[in-house]
Design a protein around this nucleic acid. Structure first.
Lengths: 236, 236
DNA sequence: TTGGTTATATTTGTACTACATTAGTACTTA
DNA sequence: TAAGTACTAATGTAGTACAAATATAACCAA
Protein backbone atom coordinates (compact mmCIF):
# COMPACT_ATOMS: atom_id res chain seq x y z
CA UNK A 1 0.00 0.00 0.00
CA UNK A 2 2.40 2.65 1.11
CA UNK A 3 6.07 2.15 1.47
CA UNK A 4 6.43 2.20 -2.24
CA UNK A 5 9.72 3.92 -1.53
CA UNK A 6 11.21 0.84 -0.04
CA UNK A 7 10.17 -1.61 -2.71
CA UNK A 8 13.23 -3.67 -3.54
CA UNK A 9 13.48 -2.82 -7.23
CA UNK A 10 12.95 0.89 -6.88
CA UNK A 11 15.92 2.81 -8.19
CA UNK A 12 14.30 6.23 -8.33
CA UNK A 13 15.99 8.89 -6.29
CA UNK A 14 13.96 9.27 -3.15
CA UNK A 15 14.84 12.10 -0.76
CA UNK A 16 17.03 10.41 1.79
CA UNK A 17 14.93 10.26 4.88
CA UNK A 18 16.66 11.88 7.82
CA UNK A 19 15.73 10.12 10.95
CA UNK A 20 15.43 12.38 13.92
CA UNK A 21 16.95 11.72 17.30
CA UNK A 22 13.51 10.88 18.57
CA UNK A 23 13.14 8.19 15.92
CA UNK A 24 16.50 6.74 16.76
CA UNK A 25 15.84 6.76 20.47
CA UNK A 26 12.50 5.11 19.87
CA UNK A 27 13.90 2.23 17.87
CA UNK A 28 16.82 1.94 20.26
CA UNK A 29 14.44 1.62 23.17
CA UNK A 30 12.34 -0.89 21.28
CA UNK A 31 15.40 -3.04 20.74
CA UNK A 32 16.32 -2.67 24.37
CA UNK A 33 12.91 -3.83 25.57
CA UNK A 34 13.09 -6.90 23.38
CA UNK A 35 16.69 -7.77 24.07
CA UNK A 36 16.04 -7.56 27.78
CA UNK A 37 13.03 -9.79 27.37
CA UNK A 38 10.92 -7.39 29.38
CA UNK A 39 7.40 -8.47 30.12
CA UNK A 40 4.45 -6.49 31.51
CA UNK A 41 5.20 -5.37 35.02
CA UNK A 42 8.94 -5.05 34.57
CA UNK A 43 10.42 -1.64 35.36
CA UNK A 44 12.43 0.28 32.81
CA UNK A 45 15.19 2.85 33.40
CA UNK A 46 14.43 6.39 34.43
CA UNK A 47 14.12 9.14 31.87
CA UNK A 48 17.36 10.74 32.98
CA UNK A 49 19.28 7.49 32.92
CA UNK A 50 18.13 6.84 29.38
CA UNK A 51 18.95 10.36 28.28
CA UNK A 52 22.38 10.14 29.80
CA UNK A 53 23.07 6.65 28.48
CA UNK A 54 22.12 7.63 24.95
CA UNK A 55 23.69 11.06 25.13
CA UNK A 56 20.56 12.99 24.23
CA UNK A 57 18.38 15.48 25.99
CA UNK A 58 15.60 14.37 28.26
CA UNK A 59 13.28 16.12 25.86
CA UNK A 60 14.02 13.71 23.05
CA UNK A 61 13.71 10.74 25.35
CA UNK A 62 10.32 11.91 26.49
CA UNK A 63 9.10 12.29 22.93
CA UNK A 64 10.10 8.71 22.23
CA UNK A 65 8.61 7.44 25.46
CA UNK A 66 5.43 9.32 24.67
CA UNK A 67 5.01 7.08 21.65
CA UNK A 68 5.31 3.91 23.69
CA UNK A 69 2.85 5.34 26.15
CA UNK A 70 0.37 5.92 23.37
CA UNK A 71 0.75 2.32 22.25
CA UNK A 72 0.12 1.23 25.80
CA UNK A 73 3.48 -0.45 26.02
CA UNK A 74 4.61 1.48 29.07
CA UNK A 75 2.96 3.25 31.95
CA UNK A 76 4.41 5.86 34.23
CA UNK A 77 3.96 6.47 37.90
CA UNK A 78 5.48 9.44 39.57
CA UNK A 79 8.40 8.72 41.78
CA UNK A 80 8.18 5.02 40.87
CA UNK A 81 9.24 5.40 37.28
CA UNK A 82 7.96 3.45 34.31
CA UNK A 83 6.90 -0.16 33.82
CA UNK A 84 6.09 -2.25 30.80
CA UNK A 85 2.41 -2.88 30.25
CA UNK A 86 0.41 -5.06 27.95
CA UNK A 87 -0.47 -2.98 24.91
CA UNK A 88 -3.92 -2.99 23.46
CA UNK A 89 -3.08 -4.05 19.96
CA UNK A 90 -6.08 -2.43 18.32
CA UNK A 91 -5.70 0.88 20.07
CA UNK A 92 -3.19 2.22 17.62
CA UNK A 93 -5.08 0.92 14.61
CA UNK A 94 -8.01 2.95 15.74
CA UNK A 95 -6.24 6.23 15.26
CA UNK A 96 -5.05 5.37 11.82
CA UNK A 97 -8.09 3.76 10.24
CA UNK A 98 -9.65 6.93 8.96
CA UNK A 99 -11.00 6.32 5.47
CA UNK A 100 -10.18 9.87 4.52
CA UNK A 101 -6.55 9.23 5.18
CA UNK A 102 -6.44 6.02 3.14
CA UNK A 103 -6.04 5.94 -0.59
CA UNK A 104 -8.43 3.96 -2.73
CA UNK A 105 -6.06 1.04 -3.01
CA UNK A 106 -5.78 0.67 0.73
CA UNK A 107 -9.54 1.00 1.10
CA UNK A 108 -10.08 -1.71 -1.47
CA UNK A 109 -7.72 -4.05 0.27
CA UNK A 110 -9.37 -3.44 3.59
CA UNK A 111 -12.75 -4.10 2.07
CA UNK A 112 -11.41 -7.32 0.69
CA UNK A 113 -10.11 -8.18 4.12
CA UNK A 114 -13.65 -7.89 5.35
CA UNK A 115 -14.85 -10.39 2.80
CA UNK A 116 -12.13 -12.80 3.80
CA UNK A 117 -12.98 -12.44 7.47
CA UNK A 118 -16.68 -12.97 7.05
CA UNK A 119 -16.25 -15.99 4.84
CA UNK A 120 -13.73 -17.42 7.27
CA UNK A 121 -16.09 -16.95 10.19
CA UNK A 122 -18.42 -19.75 9.22
CA UNK A 123 -16.92 -22.55 11.27
CA UNK A 124 -16.59 -20.34 14.31
CA UNK A 125 -20.20 -19.29 13.95
CA UNK A 126 -21.57 -22.80 13.81
CA UNK A 127 -19.46 -23.78 16.79
CA UNK A 128 -20.63 -20.94 18.98
CA UNK A 129 -24.07 -19.85 17.98
CA UNK A 130 -26.81 -19.98 20.62
CA UNK A 131 -30.56 -19.70 20.50
CA UNK A 132 -30.58 -16.10 21.70
CA UNK A 133 -28.28 -15.21 18.82
CA UNK A 134 -30.76 -16.62 16.35
CA UNK A 135 -33.48 -14.53 17.93
CA UNK A 136 -31.32 -11.44 17.64
CA UNK A 137 -30.68 -12.08 13.97
CA UNK A 138 -34.37 -12.79 13.38
CA UNK A 139 -35.19 -9.42 14.83
CA UNK A 140 -32.75 -7.63 12.57
CA UNK A 141 -34.01 -9.45 9.49
CA UNK A 142 -37.59 -8.50 10.40
CA UNK A 143 -36.54 -4.91 10.91
CA UNK A 144 -34.89 -4.92 7.52
CA UNK A 145 -38.01 -6.28 5.80
CA UNK A 146 -40.06 -3.47 7.30
CA UNK A 147 -37.45 -0.81 6.58
CA UNK A 148 -38.67 2.21 4.66
CA UNK A 149 -35.53 4.15 3.81
CA UNK A 150 -32.16 3.23 2.35
CA UNK A 151 -30.53 4.52 5.50
CA UNK A 152 -32.60 2.18 7.60
CA UNK A 153 -31.69 -0.77 5.43
CA UNK A 154 -28.00 0.07 5.58
CA UNK A 155 -28.21 0.18 9.36
CA UNK A 156 -29.81 -3.27 9.38
CA UNK A 157 -27.02 -4.51 7.17
CA UNK A 158 -24.43 -3.21 9.59
CA UNK A 159 -26.28 -4.68 12.55
CA UNK A 160 -26.61 -8.07 10.94
CA UNK A 161 -22.94 -8.42 10.15
CA UNK A 162 -21.83 -6.96 13.46
CA UNK A 163 -23.97 -9.55 15.21
CA UNK A 164 -22.20 -12.29 13.30
CA UNK A 165 -18.88 -11.10 14.68
CA UNK A 166 -20.37 -11.00 18.14
CA UNK A 167 -21.53 -14.59 17.78
CA UNK A 168 -18.06 -15.67 16.74
CA UNK A 169 -17.06 -14.75 20.27
CA UNK A 170 -13.60 -13.43 19.50
CA UNK A 171 -13.08 -10.03 21.07
CA UNK A 172 -10.20 -8.97 18.89
CA UNK A 173 -12.15 -9.92 15.80
CA UNK A 174 -15.20 -8.05 16.98
CA UNK A 175 -13.28 -4.91 17.76
CA UNK A 176 -11.37 -5.26 14.55
CA UNK A 177 -14.58 -5.29 12.59
CA UNK A 178 -15.81 -2.29 14.50
CA UNK A 179 -12.69 -0.39 13.49
CA UNK A 180 -13.05 -1.41 9.89
CA UNK A 181 -16.68 -0.31 9.77
CA UNK A 182 -16.03 3.30 8.78
CA UNK A 183 -13.98 2.07 5.87
CA UNK A 184 -16.72 -0.29 4.75
CA UNK A 185 -19.24 2.47 5.18
CA UNK A 186 -17.14 4.78 3.06
CA UNK A 187 -16.92 2.23 0.28
CA UNK A 188 -20.65 1.55 0.51
CA UNK A 189 -21.60 5.19 0.19
CA UNK A 190 -19.21 5.43 -2.71
CA UNK A 191 -20.94 2.48 -4.31
CA UNK A 192 -24.28 4.12 -3.64
CA UNK A 193 -23.22 7.25 -5.43
CA UNK A 194 -21.89 5.24 -8.32
CA UNK A 195 -24.81 2.94 -8.93
CA UNK A 196 -27.56 4.80 -7.14
CA UNK A 197 -28.46 1.70 -5.18
CA UNK A 198 -26.84 -0.74 -2.82
CA UNK A 199 -25.96 -3.99 -4.48
CA UNK A 200 -28.07 -6.91 -3.44
CA UNK A 201 -26.47 -10.31 -3.57
CA UNK A 202 -28.21 -13.48 -4.61
CA UNK A 203 -28.34 -14.49 -0.97
CA UNK A 204 -30.14 -12.25 1.51
CA UNK A 205 -29.65 -11.93 5.23
CA UNK A 206 -32.69 -14.07 5.62
CA UNK A 207 -31.02 -16.75 3.52
CA UNK A 208 -27.87 -16.59 5.62
CA UNK A 209 -29.90 -16.90 8.77
CA UNK A 210 -31.73 -19.94 7.48
CA UNK A 211 -28.42 -21.65 6.70
CA UNK A 212 -27.16 -20.83 10.18
CA UNK A 213 -30.17 -22.63 11.57
CA UNK A 214 -30.28 -25.71 9.39
CA UNK A 215 -27.23 -25.71 7.13
CA UNK A 216 -23.52 -26.45 7.26
CA UNK A 217 -20.41 -24.27 7.54
CA UNK A 218 -19.57 -25.02 3.93
CA UNK A 219 -22.97 -23.87 2.77
CA UNK A 220 -22.69 -20.77 4.86
CA UNK A 221 -19.30 -19.88 3.47
CA UNK A 222 -20.55 -20.18 -0.08
CA UNK A 223 -23.69 -18.28 0.73
CA UNK A 224 -21.67 -15.48 2.31
CA UNK A 225 -19.58 -15.33 -0.81
CA UNK A 226 -22.68 -14.93 -2.94
CA UNK A 227 -24.05 -12.42 -0.49
CA UNK A 228 -20.99 -10.22 -0.66
CA UNK A 229 -20.04 -10.86 -4.26
CA UNK A 230 -21.68 -7.73 -5.65
CA UNK A 231 -19.50 -5.48 -3.49
CA UNK A 232 -16.59 -7.63 -4.35
CA UNK A 233 -17.24 -7.04 -8.03
CA UNK A 234 -17.79 -3.34 -7.60
CA UNK A 235 -14.44 -2.65 -6.02
CA UNK A 236 -12.33 -4.84 -8.25
CA UNK B 1 -8.61 -8.47 25.78
CA UNK B 2 -7.50 -5.50 27.79
CA UNK B 3 -9.67 -2.59 28.63
CA UNK B 4 -11.40 -4.62 31.25
CA UNK B 5 -11.52 -1.40 33.19
CA UNK B 6 -13.97 0.16 30.84
CA UNK B 7 -16.42 -2.70 30.64
CA UNK B 8 -19.88 -1.24 31.06
CA UNK B 9 -20.94 -3.17 34.13
CA UNK B 10 -17.75 -2.75 36.09
CA UNK B 11 -18.37 -1.05 39.39
CA UNK B 12 -15.03 -1.87 41.01
CA UNK B 13 -13.03 1.08 42.16
CA UNK B 14 -10.41 1.67 39.51
CA UNK B 15 -7.74 4.28 40.19
CA UNK B 16 -9.09 7.29 38.40
CA UNK B 17 -6.85 7.64 35.43
CA UNK B 18 -5.28 11.04 35.23
CA UNK B 19 -4.85 11.98 31.66
CA UNK B 20 -1.78 14.02 31.01
CA UNK B 21 -1.71 17.20 28.99
CA UNK B 22 0.00 15.28 26.21
CA UNK B 23 -2.91 12.82 26.08
CA UNK B 24 -5.41 15.63 25.98
CA UNK B 25 -3.54 17.51 23.30
CA UNK B 26 -3.26 14.34 21.27
CA UNK B 27 -6.97 13.60 21.31
CA UNK B 28 -7.76 17.27 20.77
CA UNK B 29 -5.54 17.29 17.69
CA UNK B 30 -7.09 14.09 16.44
CA UNK B 31 -10.53 15.65 16.68
CA UNK B 32 -9.25 18.72 14.93
CA UNK B 33 -7.85 16.75 12.01
CA UNK B 34 -11.13 14.94 11.54
CA UNK B 35 -13.38 17.93 12.01
CA UNK B 36 -11.38 19.86 9.46
CA UNK B 37 -11.62 16.96 7.07
CA UNK B 38 -7.91 17.09 6.46
CA UNK B 39 -6.57 14.74 3.83
CA UNK B 40 -2.98 13.78 3.00
CA UNK B 41 -1.11 16.80 1.74
CA UNK B 42 -3.03 19.36 3.75
CA UNK B 43 -0.92 21.56 6.02
CA UNK B 44 -1.58 21.76 9.75
CA UNK B 45 -0.88 24.65 12.11
CA UNK B 46 2.60 25.37 13.42
CA UNK B 47 3.76 23.98 16.71
CA UNK B 48 3.72 27.37 18.35
CA UNK B 49 0.26 28.20 17.07
CA UNK B 50 -1.07 24.96 18.49
CA UNK B 51 0.68 25.49 21.80
CA UNK B 52 -0.67 28.98 22.07
CA UNK B 53 -4.17 28.04 20.98
CA UNK B 54 -4.38 25.23 23.51
CA UNK B 55 -2.56 27.11 26.23
CA UNK B 56 0.15 24.55 26.75
CA UNK B 57 3.89 24.48 26.31
CA UNK B 58 5.45 23.68 22.99
CA UNK B 59 6.97 20.71 24.72
CA UNK B 60 3.64 19.01 25.31
CA UNK B 61 2.53 19.77 21.79
CA UNK B 62 5.66 18.17 20.42
CA UNK B 63 5.14 15.03 22.48
CA UNK B 64 1.64 14.70 21.06
CA UNK B 65 2.79 15.44 17.53
CA UNK B 66 5.56 12.90 17.94
CA UNK B 67 2.88 10.26 18.30
CA UNK B 68 1.19 11.23 15.09
CA UNK B 69 4.54 11.22 13.38
CA UNK B 70 5.14 7.68 14.53
CA UNK B 71 1.80 6.61 13.13
CA UNK B 72 2.76 8.24 9.86
CA UNK B 73 -0.18 10.59 10.04
CA UNK B 74 1.91 13.72 9.75
CA UNK B 75 5.25 14.64 8.34
CA UNK B 76 7.37 17.65 9.16
CA UNK B 77 9.55 19.77 7.00
CA UNK B 78 11.66 22.47 8.47
CA UNK B 79 10.55 25.96 7.73
CA UNK B 80 7.55 24.58 5.84
CA UNK B 81 5.74 23.14 8.81
CA UNK B 82 3.75 19.95 8.96
CA UNK B 83 1.41 18.22 6.55
CA UNK B 84 -0.97 15.31 6.83
CA UNK B 85 0.28 12.10 5.28
CA UNK B 86 -1.23 8.73 4.56
CA UNK B 87 -0.46 6.50 7.51
CA UNK B 88 0.74 2.99 7.03
CA UNK B 89 -1.91 1.20 9.00
CA UNK B 90 0.18 -1.81 9.89
CA UNK B 91 3.19 0.15 11.01
CA UNK B 92 1.90 0.69 14.50
CA UNK B 93 0.68 -2.87 14.84
CA UNK B 94 4.21 -4.00 14.22
CA UNK B 95 5.54 -2.43 17.36
CA UNK B 96 2.84 -3.87 19.53
CA UNK B 97 2.56 -7.44 18.28
CA UNK B 98 5.22 -8.89 20.52
CA UNK B 99 4.03 -12.23 21.85
CA UNK B 100 5.89 -11.62 25.07
CA UNK B 101 3.77 -8.58 25.70
CA UNK B 102 0.48 -10.34 25.03
CA UNK B 103 -1.33 -12.45 27.56
CA UNK B 104 -2.46 -15.95 26.70
CA UNK B 105 -6.00 -14.84 26.01
CA UNK B 106 -4.87 -12.30 23.44
CA UNK B 107 -2.54 -14.84 21.87
CA UNK B 108 -5.36 -17.35 21.59
CA UNK B 109 -7.62 -14.85 19.95
CA UNK B 110 -4.94 -13.88 17.48
CA UNK B 111 -4.31 -17.49 16.66
CA UNK B 112 -8.01 -17.91 16.06
CA UNK B 113 -7.92 -14.88 13.82
CA UNK B 114 -5.37 -16.70 11.73
CA UNK B 115 -7.68 -19.66 11.30
CA UNK B 116 -10.48 -17.38 10.22
CA UNK B 117 -8.24 -15.61 7.72
CA UNK B 118 -6.91 -18.76 6.13
CA UNK B 119 -10.31 -20.34 5.82
CA UNK B 120 -11.69 -17.14 4.38
CA UNK B 121 -8.92 -16.95 1.82
CA UNK B 122 -10.21 -19.79 -0.31
CA UNK B 123 -12.26 -17.83 -2.83
CA UNK B 124 -9.52 -15.27 -3.25
CA UNK B 125 -7.01 -18.03 -3.82
CA UNK B 126 -8.99 -19.72 -6.54
CA UNK B 127 -9.60 -16.41 -8.23
CA UNK B 128 -5.95 -15.41 -8.33
CA UNK B 129 -3.77 -18.47 -8.39
CA UNK B 130 -1.36 -18.83 -11.32
CA UNK B 131 0.74 -21.68 -12.62
CA UNK B 132 3.92 -20.33 -11.11
CA UNK B 133 2.24 -20.31 -7.72
CA UNK B 134 1.43 -23.98 -8.04
CA UNK B 135 5.07 -24.66 -8.84
CA UNK B 136 6.15 -22.71 -5.79
CA UNK B 137 3.83 -24.68 -3.56
CA UNK B 138 4.97 -27.94 -5.14
CA UNK B 139 8.54 -27.09 -4.27
CA UNK B 140 7.66 -26.40 -0.64
CA UNK B 141 5.70 -29.62 -0.33
CA UNK B 142 8.63 -31.55 -1.77
CA UNK B 143 10.99 -29.85 0.60
CA UNK B 144 8.73 -30.79 3.48
CA UNK B 145 8.62 -34.44 2.45
CA UNK B 146 12.41 -34.56 2.43
CA UNK B 147 12.76 -32.63 5.67
CA UNK B 148 14.85 -34.26 8.33
CA UNK B 149 14.36 -32.12 11.42
CA UNK B 150 11.33 -30.68 13.17
CA UNK B 151 12.75 -27.23 12.62
CA UNK B 152 12.92 -27.82 8.91
CA UNK B 153 9.34 -29.02 8.80
CA UNK B 154 8.15 -26.02 10.76
CA UNK B 155 9.89 -23.73 8.29
CA UNK B 156 8.13 -25.49 5.42
CA UNK B 157 4.84 -25.03 7.22
CA UNK B 158 5.49 -21.33 7.54
CA UNK B 159 6.55 -21.05 3.91
CA UNK B 160 3.50 -22.90 2.65
CA UNK B 161 1.03 -20.72 4.46
CA UNK B 162 2.92 -17.53 3.70
CA UNK B 163 2.78 -18.43 0.03
CA UNK B 164 -0.97 -18.79 0.24
CA UNK B 165 -1.22 -15.22 1.48
CA UNK B 166 1.03 -14.11 -1.33
CA UNK B 167 -1.20 -15.81 -3.87
CA UNK B 168 -4.23 -14.06 -2.44
CA UNK B 169 -2.62 -10.89 -3.75
CA UNK B 170 -3.71 -8.57 -0.99
CA UNK B 171 -0.80 -6.60 0.37
CA UNK B 172 -2.39 -5.66 3.64
CA UNK B 173 -3.35 -9.26 4.26
CA UNK B 174 0.12 -10.48 3.41
CA UNK B 175 1.81 -8.01 5.70
CA UNK B 176 -0.75 -8.68 8.37
CA UNK B 177 0.08 -12.34 8.31
CA UNK B 178 3.76 -11.55 8.48
CA UNK B 179 3.15 -9.53 11.61
CA UNK B 180 1.09 -12.26 13.15
CA UNK B 181 3.74 -14.88 12.45
CA UNK B 182 5.72 -14.41 15.67
CA UNK B 183 2.53 -14.91 17.62
CA UNK B 184 1.73 -18.10 15.72
CA UNK B 185 5.25 -19.26 16.18
CA UNK B 186 5.05 -18.65 19.89
CA UNK B 187 1.86 -20.69 20.15
CA UNK B 188 3.36 -23.45 18.04
CA UNK B 189 6.46 -23.79 20.18
CA UNK B 190 4.20 -23.79 23.21
CA UNK B 191 2.23 -26.60 21.68
CA UNK B 192 5.46 -28.40 20.89
CA UNK B 193 6.53 -28.22 24.50
CA UNK B 194 3.14 -29.40 25.63
CA UNK B 195 2.68 -32.38 23.36
CA UNK B 196 6.23 -32.97 22.24
CA UNK B 197 5.18 -32.94 18.62
CA UNK B 198 3.48 -30.61 16.19
CA UNK B 199 -0.10 -31.56 15.55
CA UNK B 200 -0.79 -32.96 12.15
CA UNK B 201 -4.22 -32.43 10.73
CA UNK B 202 -6.13 -34.91 8.66
CA UNK B 203 -5.34 -32.86 5.59
CA UNK B 204 -1.71 -32.25 4.68
CA UNK B 205 -0.17 -29.45 2.65
CA UNK B 206 -0.07 -31.85 -0.23
CA UNK B 207 -3.79 -32.39 0.13
CA UNK B 208 -4.44 -28.66 0.16
CA UNK B 209 -2.33 -28.21 -2.93
CA UNK B 210 -4.22 -30.93 -4.79
CA UNK B 211 -7.51 -29.22 -4.02
CA UNK B 212 -6.12 -25.91 -5.21
CA UNK B 213 -5.35 -27.57 -8.52
CA UNK B 214 -8.50 -29.55 -9.11
CA UNK B 215 -11.01 -28.73 -6.39
CA UNK B 216 -13.44 -25.98 -5.41
CA UNK B 217 -13.26 -23.10 -2.94
CA UNK B 218 -15.76 -24.89 -0.71
CA UNK B 219 -13.62 -28.00 -0.62
CA UNK B 220 -10.55 -25.95 0.11
CA UNK B 221 -12.21 -24.13 2.97
CA UNK B 222 -13.26 -27.40 4.59
CA UNK B 223 -9.87 -28.94 3.98
CA UNK B 224 -8.16 -25.95 5.55
CA UNK B 225 -10.41 -26.33 8.55
CA UNK B 226 -9.40 -29.95 8.92
CA UNK B 227 -5.79 -29.01 8.36
CA UNK B 228 -5.77 -26.44 11.14
CA UNK B 229 -8.23 -28.14 13.45
CA UNK B 230 -5.60 -29.74 15.71
CA UNK B 231 -4.15 -26.34 16.61
CA UNK B 232 -7.63 -25.05 16.97
CA UNK B 233 -8.37 -27.79 19.48
CA UNK B 234 -5.13 -27.32 21.34
CA UNK B 235 -5.69 -23.68 22.12
CA UNK B 236 -9.34 -23.86 23.03
C1' DT C 1 6.28 -1.73 70.15
C1' DT C 2 2.71 0.23 67.52
C1' DG C 3 0.48 3.64 64.98
C1' DG C 4 0.33 7.79 62.93
C1' DT C 5 2.44 12.11 61.34
C1' DT C 6 5.89 14.71 59.15
C1' DA C 7 9.87 15.42 56.43
C1' DT C 8 12.67 14.14 52.58
C1' DA C 9 14.00 12.61 48.31
C1' DT C 10 13.06 10.81 43.79
C1' DT C 11 10.78 10.71 39.52
C1' DT C 12 7.62 12.25 36.15
C1' DG C 13 4.98 16.45 34.19
C1' DT C 14 5.00 21.10 32.38
C1' DA C 15 6.97 25.48 31.09
C1' DC C 16 10.32 28.40 29.28
C1' DT C 17 14.57 29.88 27.00
C1' DA C 18 18.22 29.43 23.83
C1' DC C 19 20.33 28.08 19.91
C1' DA C 20 21.14 24.84 15.82
C1' DT C 21 19.47 23.42 11.44
C1' DT C 22 16.97 23.60 7.37
C1' DA C 23 14.92 25.66 3.60
C1' DG C 24 11.95 29.15 1.51
C1' DT C 25 12.17 34.26 -0.02
C1' DA C 26 13.86 38.37 -1.47
C1' DC C 27 17.46 41.03 -2.74
C1' DT C 28 22.06 41.89 -4.91
C1' DT C 29 25.38 41.65 -8.30
C1' DA C 30 27.79 40.26 -12.41
C1' DT D 1 19.05 36.05 -16.61
C1' DA D 2 21.68 33.46 -13.24
C1' DA D 3 24.30 32.83 -9.34
C1' DG D 4 25.06 34.10 -5.00
C1' DT D 5 23.91 36.22 -0.39
C1' DA D 6 21.38 37.74 3.46
C1' DC D 7 17.22 37.18 5.86
C1' DT D 8 13.55 34.69 8.00
C1' DA D 9 10.35 31.27 9.57
C1' DA D 10 9.77 26.79 11.01
C1' DT D 11 11.27 22.44 13.25
C1' DG D 12 15.04 19.93 16.08
C1' DT D 13 17.79 19.60 20.24
C1' DA D 14 19.60 21.01 24.72
C1' DG D 15 19.24 22.72 29.16
C1' DT D 16 17.16 24.76 33.35
C1' DA D 17 13.61 25.38 36.57
C1' DC D 18 9.92 24.17 39.14
C1' DA D 19 5.35 21.70 40.11
C1' DA D 20 3.15 17.44 41.53
C1' DA D 21 2.95 13.12 43.26
C1' DT D 22 4.44 9.49 46.19
C1' DA D 23 7.60 5.95 48.22
C1' DT D 24 10.67 5.91 51.96
C1' DA D 25 12.67 7.37 56.08
C1' DA D 26 12.57 9.72 60.30
C1' DC D 27 10.19 11.05 64.08
C1' DC D 28 6.94 11.42 67.80
C1' DA D 29 3.29 9.91 70.94
C1' DA D 30 0.46 6.53 73.36
Amino acid sequence: MIDKKNEPGDTSLQPLEKISMTDRVESRLGEYFKSQGLVPGDPIPKELEIAEALGVSRNVVREALSRFKMLGMIETKKRRGMVMTQPDILNSLERVLDPYLLDSHARKEIFELRLVLEMGLSHLLFARIRKEHIAELEEIVQRELNAKSVKERVQCDIDFHATLYKIAGNDILRRFQKLLLPVFDYELSYELKLKDKVSQGKVTHQGLLRILQTGTPQEFESAMYEHLKPHFDTIS
